[in-house]
Design a protein around this nucleic acid. Structure first.
Length: 850
RNA sequence: GCAGGGAUAGCGAAGUGGUCAAACGCGCGAGACUCAAAAUCUCGUCUCUUAGUGAGUUCGGAGGUCCGAAUCCUCCUCCCUGCACCA
């Protein structure tokens, strides 16, 4: 039975944990413990963390956390008999490396290679169980060759295309950006830099072709709800109606030119309000705006545009609705009314058609605009359940109701009216049902060097010509000049080429691809990283795709995670991936953010960063891993706290010193058996659900429990099972102990323990708790007596209820040992008169100290 | 503005209808060991009370449902995160 081990001084000797860790890390690598092959007999499991951008500053705590999460999962699945694919690589192309290299006066290639080297050694020091033989680097031409190859396939299918469009430009990046890389009007990499709109000809990927499917399939994913909602909002589907409005631009008396624009379709989700249109608003940023402006209004419009440009980005949020009359009129196709067309600052140029019909009575924005410019407000819907007068409301009525002032549609319920009016417009060929998405095509051109070269040549005769598949990769030339515009343009040998079609002189595309191109399919390459012929062997794709568990930060919700889904769907349609694999990441786990101990984001300038490697050196990798997972639930944000490592280190130290290989294990008591089996059962569920913090608490409790027994009360098997539970979190120390037990194989490849439900005995645990509590109570009373100077007590008489006598009786000796006082267990029935005042309750016997 | 997440004892953090004064860690207090300290071990740590078993007040605030609420509902306050005039 349970025995508190005599307090003994733990052997005080310095243990070199780092040495032990290095030993196992190199053993694992030498014996190829984590290298995997196809194995049709085993079920596969693909665990993947978002691969890092290898910056020169090395691994930070967030990385260490992210990879520890994945490593625990990979180890857990591996020990559970899965053929686990768990690779690592580097997203090594990209602007930060280029900028850092320029700053350091180094070539980006050299800078990146060095960064990768240091990244890798740091990752290895943390004991992650990656299959390093599959490592990929996106700046390797053998990798980006396939970026170029996909580009050619997309070009072939019309998914990659070039067009002139208003695009986002960041002057700090010195490049254009994708929509997804503009956050609140600012560059995603430079929070203080507002993007500018430029009209340029650029390469785009037609992600919008997949908008519908990307949206529909979101629901089928086992992803955090938050991310799914973010993606849905980003894709932003709305069902509405497209309506054609005729445009009249009155000619100036001196100008006899025909007006350029005769018709302009608009998109609306509220076609039920079409009888209430009193003006139109075209986006002030619309490229065709000036074609609507007649001579008389030109000055006003130009003044307005000038004013708009001077507005600072940060003020745009608070900006009032603003606009100016263009001089043109639109004719409502149903009422034939002529309404003025305004240019406005609140209409988005590239959503819908860039012009909206304004119904001030039923849209708040239009209402504000109408009030400001004294435009008429015409009510066409009234609520059915109350008296209503728009004039009293002083705001638009956006609720539901019945149509009024709407000719033959009067009286219709407005939702119904949307269908009816659309149907009518379709019959009259004046409009049609239409679906709109917020998602825009992906702008992939970048005017920078450190990216995948676009495999395109411009020929004066043939125009845009793709280079041949055979000539891939189109390698990034090393000799370029930085800081003078587009670096690739400075290398003559690169730029000047011949047309693949007509062989005459031609010029290469000097833009490179967005870094997100590289990360949109990397999960595929891990499956077959050295394939020279194919992007990835199709059989192998069938075997390993999709990623079963993906792990990474939420910041990629509307970037990488959408792009990768789009690529997967494209590759499926092209026949690269099998039909049934149309989503890359089945399950996604988002880890929380680690902040400094002061609660702020870890940053050098705040001086609150903690280098994970420093923790490894000071304590051990196992301590760091355990600490990272102990602080909080992994999906929550938390503040780093060095003290937690202290606690983790102490615990591991305790375990390591207590079980030093010299233990003479015996047979497990029923209590130990119960506890071990219960812990296995519960830890399984906790680990599976990423509740690592909870699993760790239970495993720690288990060890504390085991430690309180003598070796002969623990079986070797039960100890080994416990060790296995700990091993996914702390692989080094457990591997060491495993071998100290005389095992020759690797613990990391051992089978996960299986629990036996029959051995879990909750009554036993309850009894034990009772006894524990009784011991504490006796100690407590003794202490109180002592404080009252009532010493010299020699006996504790315990009065139990009849059916608990046996339970406590067999603990007499242990209780005595614990409390240092003679303990006598009695049945309350046998109490004499004076002792009768002592109450005995179920689970709580009465105590009399004499 | 819209959407999502959160607020638990000195701190961090579990807990999502009864077994909850609330796991676990840290901190703190007392004791043991020691010449002493560190380390380690034991006990305690909402308030009051008592020779343990008792009572009271708690889980952002205010109401409500229920025999019963940290846990469910309504409203409010504050914090975080994302989107931001998408017609």
């Amino acid at each position: 039975m349970k025995k508190k081990v005599e307090t003994k001084m733990l052997e005080k000797k310095e243990i070199n944990y780092n040495k032990i860790e290095r030993k196992w890390q190199s053993e694992w690598e030498k014996k190829k413990v984590f290298v995997i092959k196809e194995n049709p007999k085993k079920k596969k499991f693909y665990v993947l963390e978002m691969f890092p951008y290898p910056s020169g500053t090395g691994l930070h705590m967030g990385h260490a956390f992210n990879y520890t999460l994945g490593d625990v999962y990979a180890r857990f699945k591996r020990m559970n008999g899965f053929n686990v694919l768990y690779p690592m690589g580097y997203d090594s192309l990209g602007l930060p490396a280029e900028n850092a290299a320029i700053k350091a006066g180094e070539h980006p290639k050299k800078y990146t290679n060095n960064s990768i080297k240091s990244f890798m050694s740091q990752q290895k020091a943390l004991g992650f169980s990656y299959d390093w033989t599959r490592m990929i680097k996106t700046h390797d031409p053998e990798y980006y060759k396939w970026d170029q190859w996909i580009f050619l396939k997309m070009l072939e299918k019309g998914i990659a295309y070039r067009k002139k469009a208003p695009v986002n430009y960041c002057k700090k990046c010195d490049s254009v950006l994708a929509n997804e890389q503009v956050h609140n009007g600012m560059c995603w990499r430079h929070e203080d830099t507002a993007v500018e709109i430029k009209h340029l000809e650029q390469w785009f990927f037609k992600i919008t072709d997949y908008a519908d499917e990307l949206l529909d399939k979101v629901d089928s994913l086992e992803w955090p709800e938050r991310i799914k909602i973010m993606q849905k909002n980003w894709i932003g589907k709305s069902n509405g109606t497209q309506v054609d409005f005729e445009i009249e631009t009155p000619a100036h008396k001196d100008c006899t030119l025909d007006p350029e624009i005769k018709k302009w379709p608009i998109f609306t989700t509220r076609v039920d309000t079409i009888y209430g249109v009193t003006f139109m608003v075209v986006s002030a940023q619309h490229p065709k705006l000036m074609s609507l402006v007649n001579f008389d209004q030109k000055k006003d419009v130009e003044a307005f545009l000038k004013k708009l440009k001077s507005v600072k980005q940060e003020d745009i949020d608070k900006m009032d609705k603003d606009g100016v009359f263009t001089g043109s009129y639109a004719i409502n196709p149903l009422t034939k009314e002529k309404v003025p067309v305004y240019a406005g600052n609140f209409v988005v140029a590239d959503y819908g058609t860039g012009m909206v019909m304004a119904v001030p009575a039923h849209d708040q924005r239009d209402y504000e605009f109408a009030v400001k410019y004294k435009l008429p407000i015409k009510q066409v819907i009234e609520p059915v359940d109350r008296e209503f007068n728009l004039k009293d409301e002083s705001r638009a009525f956006t609720g539901e109701g019945r149509l009024v002032n709407s000719d033959k549609f009067n009286g219709l319920e407005n939702k119904k009216a949307i269908h009816e009016i659309t149907k009518y417009l379709e019959e009259k060929k004046l409009g049609s049902k239409k679906v709109q998405f917020k998602l825009r095509d992906w702008l992939v051109s970048r005017q920078r060097y450190w990216g995948t070269p676009i495999p395109i040549v411009y020929c004066d005769k043939c125009g845009i010509v793709p280079i041949s598949e055979k000539s891939l990769p189109l390698t990034l030339p090393e000799k370029v000049v930085f800081g003078k515009g587009n670096p690739l343009a400075t290398n003559k040998n690169f730029v000047e080429t011949s047309c693949p079609k007509c062989k005459s002189k031609a010029r290469r595309e000097t833009d490179t691809m967005d870094t997100f191109v590289n990360s949109s399919w990397y999960f595929l390459r891990y499956i077959d990283p050295n394939n020279k012929k194919d992007i990835c062997d199709k059989k192998k794709i069938e075997n390993f795709m999709a990623v079963d568990q993906y792990i990474g930060g939420a910041e990629h919700a509307c970037m990488h995670l959408i792009y990768a889904r789009f690529y997967t769907k494209f590759m499926r349609d092209y026949g690269i991936i099998p039909e049934d694999i149309d989503e890359p990441f089945t399950k996604l786990f988002n880890q929380g953010l680690i902040h400094g101990s002061d609660g702020n984001k870890m940053s050098k300038s705040l001086g609150n960063t903690v280098d994970p490697l420093e923790i490894v050196r000071k304590y051990s990798a196992d301590s760091l891993r355990l600490a990272l997972l102990s602080i909080a639930s992994p999906d929550k944000n938390f503040n780093w706290d060095n003290k937690v490592v202290d606690g983790s280190f102490k615990f591991l130290n305790k375990v390591f010193q207590r079980f030093n290989g010299k233990n003479k294990f015996g047979k497990s008591s029923r209590n130990i058996e119960s506890k071990v089996n219960k812990t296995i059962k519960e830890a399984n569920i906790d680990i599976e659900n990423f509740k690592y913090n909870i699993a760790i608490i239970k495993i720690r409790t288990l060890f504390d429990y085991i430690i309180s027994f003598e070796d002969k009360d623990i079986s070797k098997g039960d100890f080994e099972s416990s060790l296995k539970l700990l091993s996914v979190f702390c692989p080094h120390i457990t591997e060491e102990l495993w071998h100290k037990l005389g095992n020759k194989n690797f613990m990391s490849l051992e089978e996960w323990p299986i629990f036996d439900e029959k051995k879990i005995d909750l009554n036993l645990e309850k009894e034990e708790e009772m006894i524990d509590k009784l011991g504490n109570d006796i100690l407590n009373i003794l202490r109180i007596l002592e404080s009252k100077s009532e010493k010299n007590k020699t006996r504790a008489i315990i009065y139990c209820i009849p059916n608990e006598v046996t339970i406590f009786k067999k603990e007499e000796a242990n209780l005595e040992k614990r409390t240092n006082i003679k303990v006598v267990i009695k049945d309350i029935k046998d109490a004499n008169q004076t002792e009768k005042k002592i109450k005995a309750m179920p689970g709580k016997p009465g105590i009399l100290i004499k």
